[in-house]
Amino acid sequence: MDGLERIVLAHPFFAGLEEKIGQVVAGCARNHRFNAGEYLGHEGEPADEVFLIRHGKVALEILPPGQPASVFSTQGVGEIVGASWLVPPYRWRFDARALELTRAIGIDARCLREKFEADHNLGYEMMKRFLPVVMQQLDETRLQILDVYGKRET
């Protein structure tokens, strides 16, 4: 097992992944380092990579016209940034900015999609990991937009 494969399999997102599948995923992966303020992706750009955070913190933000960026979520160690690569048109739906020195594993999305198409078992195994993350983010968004801490008149 080479260094990158070991790093990939050590990430919580891939906990318990079969070594054989780990090798395939690691074949599409590379290491990244982002300094504070650097962007992992910009809204509208091709979603070419999905990032698994190993260290640091990333702000997901949307830029309303004429206003400062609005951060709607932060992602930290053990979490993933980017799900747009899963669904056409494979473009970022938000900006992702490192808030501090951030180390991440970037997985080439095109490479991963091609491998999913070639091996549906691999694709299914990976979807079983990505879908709960997407569901969790949907749940969190629901709770967030409910604005439960807002003032309720009695």
Binding site: S70, V71, S73, T74, V77, E140, Q144
Partner: peptide, 23 residues
């Protein structure tokens, strides 16, 4: 500590409190 909506000065976490549990 996390907030549902950050501002320009906020350097901490943004998101709902259940999200902190796995961390």
């Amino acid at each position: 500590v996390t907030v549902d909506h950050g501002d320009a000065e906020w350097r901490g976490d943004v998101g709902v409190v259940p999200k902190l549990i796995p961390r």
